[in-house]
Design a binder for these strands. Structure first.
Length: 906
DNA sequence: GAGCACTGC
């Protein structure tokens, strides 16, 4: 009987975490909560139903095993743990067998919900997991519905009379006995407190029974009988169904009423609500308004709605709102659509790369800022917008800065257009100054206070300081509350996670459990999910994170933040064209943002691993805006296309160095995008159509002439997102290396290797499993797939790619050569020659000494390749060229005739 | 023979 403990314990856990085990999309949550209430109502009318279901006879179990084809023995013998694990497919979960009716109801709702979602948003809106989830649920539902007579199996032989009829009295007696037995079992096996409670209840009822009078007996009889009728067959099935549907409907109506009511309530309770009229007056009065609203003020969701209510969505004009991140645009749009009572894509829509959901009905449109920059290309005046809100402007992304510059120009041309810039407190003044002293409107946020602690002395090693602090918090703070640690990169995060795990193991039993969750952008998504799992009771979660948790991710339950005070930042050197990733002190704004992450659920604490003096004196106020530390060739081309010719005098909020701009112009000239007078050429206009780096778009243009457009499209799509393509697992280092080596191409260097990977990915049917087996990031390849589709469309529009795929079969070597030439057409400015000694390379343009990166297929090639082009120059331990390809001198001479001196190429 | 902060079109 010892096995039964596991059985019941497991079942309780399973039904409690049923949602989590199946990992439903979060928007199914409401279905679940409403479902719970429906269940309650139903079980009220059919009292005792649940216990009956639990109390299944062996015959039933056998039937179920036959039905579902698995061999789960509910009388546990120790092996059940595995059979009942959450990883099991849904069909094998025991609760679906034990409570068919209940689960069928839930399933039906879920399937309906999925279908609605597909009807609303199209099949493409579902992720691959969602789709297979949907499919498996639908199948299960069908299976269950085919066998919906399974209730019959609940009737063992001895309830049935010789004439084949059910003896109600007998059945009542039997079931009652079984229920008692069941209860008895539970009493023996439940957790201790529950046992006590159950026993008390039992004793009470016994006491009652012993002293019952007639009415009590009658009641018991009535109770049992009604319950029997309800259960067996006295209510015809269709009537029963109707009743259930009615209850369901009532519940849904009630739920909807509550939802609308609660939306109104929530909207009114947001801090921004009090300022509604004032805000609208200010927008009316001024063309530009800076709104300072801290997190939790509700500005992102409410402001567009207020503007809509005030009539800014009339006369065919719409209200736009930009976000720096895709997920933000989508999720905010979904929420506002819900509040407005419309579907996403109807009145409220969004527009992000690869996914546009708006229509002619759309009046409130959320979008990524990059998407709006692209919209300028097709509509220089943004004629359809009456108001634009630039949200999170303080983050100063490259795209935001470009938008601000463009708007400053546009506002003069369009006096009717309103601009609202939403920013954090710290640099509101700067935005105001930039827009000729635009008024600043303050909306208070709603955040809990965060107590800040500094170290007394500077910490030499913040990693070990962080580890010690984690244990200090874990041991000294008795209350629950998770810890979030900010470090600079993957390496540090992994080291710290290992160290924490090791120490925890040593102290096992002496301290409370610690759940360690590393998180960084390159971590595979399935491992990223772990940080969102609720912390088990009595344990503490320690999330070790990069900057990703500063803005992009929000983790619930964080009370303590540990901040190392550093960031990794990409620095671009315009003189050398070299990029490097450097660990630098983070800004005050970042430090405050990090601290703020502790105050989301309640008052929090932030431990800074540096002194107050450092915070006050050493940290820069704001992070360096992206526009000052990136290559601007693409930006310059885009702005030239918008008719902005004098970039050196363009009024940027932070002006990029002249060196960067001149370098961009030189490169564009070399590529043929500009002529000698610095005017945009036809080639330049075409290049600007592609959302890629100008050198890559030039390669695409060249590939069309060389009839290898498809191949180059694949390579370009892969090059866009190179950093995260390979999975380098520590444990299986050799296997990963071998898998990657199978794609190598010595002739064509890294570019043809990428093509090879792409082709094999296509052959695999875009299989995630194939990626996994070959140590490749599915996410990266999936993105390349989307990019390629988009670039293909642009190529067709420009007539570079014909629709008929009857390209003549060619010798693979010829094709490879053509591909390499096309790449050279874009990349000749980034070429290098082997030095006479044969151990290093020298760039042709600046005569810098550089090396082939060890991750390249051409690294250590024998004999070494004499002439190469490189995709990027990175400074890590040494000056490296990443993604290199061999080239012929005559190609360089051909494409770079305006760029190279003749003697350079000899 | 080295190493990958984070976004976005």
């Amino acid at each position: 009987m010892s096995g039964n403990k596991g059985r019941f314990g497991k079942r309780v856990r399973d039904s409690e975490t049923w949602k989590d085990d199946l990992d439903l999309p979060s928007d199914l949550e409401s279905v679940h909560t409403s479902k719970k209430r429906i269940d309650k109502k139903v079980s009220k009318t059919t009292d005792g139903n649940e216990e009956k279901n639990i109390d299944k006879t062996d015959a039933v179990l056998d039937e179920e095993q036959m039905l579902f084809g698995n061999k789960i023995s509910l009388e546990s013998n120790g092996n059940n743990g595995a059979a009942l694990s959450p990883q099991q497919p849904i069909e094998a979960l025991p609760h679906t067998l034990e409570l068919p009716k209940r689960e069928v109801d839930i399933l039906r709702l879920e399937v309906t919900h999925f279908q609605e979602r597909v009807a609303r948003n199209g099949l493409t809106s579902l992720s691959a997991e969602d789709k297979s989830e949907f499919q498996s649920r639908k199948e299960l539902l069908q299976k269950l519905q085919q066998n919906n007579h399974s209730d019959n199996y609940l009737l063992p032989d001895d309830y049935i009379t010789e004439e084949g009829k059910i003896d109600l009295a007998k059945k009542a007696k039997a079931l009652k006995m079984n229920m008692r037995a069941e209860r008895k079992q539970r009493e023996n096996e439940w957790y201790e407190n529950q046992i006590n409670r159950a026993q008390q209840v039992n004793q009470l009822s016994k006491l009652k029974k012993e002293t019952t009078d007639e009415t009590e007996i009658k009641y018991e009889y009535v109770f049992d009988k009604s319950h029997m009728i309800d259960y067996v067959a006295d209510v015809p099935e269709d009537e029963m169904k109707e009743l259930e549907n009615k209850i369901e409907l009532e519940e849904l109506i009630e739920q909807e009423e509550k939802r609308v009511y609660s939306i109104e309530e929530t909207k009114k309770s947001l801090p921004v609500f009090q300022f509604r009229d004032e805000l609208l007056n200010a927008v009316k009065k001024y063309q530009v308004l800076i709104v300072v609203g801290e997190t939790g003020s509700g500005k992102t969701t409410q402001l567009p709605q207020y503007l809509y209510e005030a009539g800014y969505g009339k006369h065919g004009k719409i209200i736009g709102c930009t976000q720096p991140r895709r997920v933000a645009a989508v999720s905010v749009a979904a929420r506002v659509a819900d509040e407005v009572g419309t579907r996403v894509g109807d009145k409220v829509g969004y527009s992000i790369r690869f996914d546009e959901r708006s229509s002619e009905n759309t009046v409130i449109k959320y979008m990524t800022d990059g998407m709006l920059v692209r919209e300028f290309l097709t509509d220089h005046d943004l004629a359809k917008y009456s108001v634009m809100i630039i949200d999170e402007a303080h983050e100063r992304t490259l795209q935001t800065d470009i938008l601000l510059g463009l708007f400053k120009d546009l506002l003069k041309k369009r006096p009717d257009l309103k601009l609202i810039i939403s920013s954090a407190t710290i640099n509101a003044k700067k935005f105001s100054d930039y827009f000729d002293s635009a008024p600043i409107f303050n909306v208070p946020g709603r955040r809990y206070p965060v107590e800040i602690f500094y170290t007394q002395q500077p910490e030499a090693n913040y990693l070990s300081a962080a580890i010690i602090t984690v244990f200090q918090i874990h041991i000294s703070q008795n209350s629950a509350g998770d810890i979030l640690v900010f470090l600079t990169g993957q390496d540090e995060i992994e080291t710290m996670a290992e160290s924490l795990a090791e120490t925890c193991k040593k102290l096992e039993g002496q301290i409370k459990e610690m759940v360690i969750c590393p998180i960084y952008a390159n971590l595979p998504p399935e491992q990223q999910k772990k940080i969102f799992e609720p912390t088990p009771k009595g344990a503490r979660k320690v999330v070790i994170s990069t900057n990703i948790a500063e803005t992009s991710l929000t983790i619930d339950g964080i009370v303590y933040v540990i901040d190392c005070g550093f960031v990794k930042e990409n620095i671009y050197n315009a003189t050398t064209g070299m990029e490097s990733l450097e660990v630098l002190p983070c800004s005050k704004a970042s430090a405050d943002q990090r601290a703020g992450r502790a105050g989301r659920v309640g008052p929090g604490k932030c431990f800074r691993l540096y002194t107050k003096w450092v915070y006050l004196n050493d940290l820069p106020r704001n992070p360096t805006p992206e526009i000052l530390r990136t290559d601007l060739t693409g930006v310059v081309l885009l702005m030239m296309t918008l008719g902005i010719t004098d970039l050196v005098h363009f009024d940027f909020m932070d002006k990029p160095s002249t060196k960067t701009l001149v370098k961009a112009l030189e490169l564009l000239y070399a590529l043929g995008a500009l002529n000698e007078r610095g005017e945009l050429t036809n080639i330049g206009i075409k290049m600007a159509m592609f959302p890629t780096k100008p050198m890559l778009s030039k390669s695409l243009l060249a590939s069309s002439e060389l009839k290898c457009c498809d191949e180059v499209l694949s390579i370009v799509s892969m090059l866009e997102d190179t950093g995260s393509l390979f999975v380098n697992s520590k444990e299986k280092k050799e296997m990963a290396k071998n898998a990657h080596a199978s794609f190598h191409s010595k002739i064509g260097g890294d570019h043809l290797t990428l093509l090879q990977i792409w082709n094999r990915f296509v052959e695999s049917g875009f299989s995630p499993q194939w990626c996994h087996d070959n140590f490749l990031q599915y996410k990266a390849l999936q993105k390349a797939r989307n990019v390629k589709k988009q670039l293909q469309r642009i190529c067709r529009r420009l007539g570079l790619l014909s629709d008929d795929r009857q390209e003549p079969e060619r010798d693979p070597n010829t094709t490879a050569l053509h591909v390499m030439r096309a790449i050279t057409a874009g990349y000749f400015p980034q070429s290098a020659r082997l030095s006479p000694r044969g151990d290093t390379y020298t760039t042709l343009s600046r005569k810098q000494p550089v090396l082939i990166h060890p991750s390249s297929t051409l690294h250590g090639a024998v004999p070494p390749v004499k002439l190469i082009v490189y995709h990027e120059l990175v400074m890590t331990t040494k000056e490296f060229m990443r993604h290199v390809m061999p080239v012929q001198g005559k190609w360089l001479a051909e494409y770079g005739r305006n760029y190279f001196d003749k003697k350079d190429l000899l």
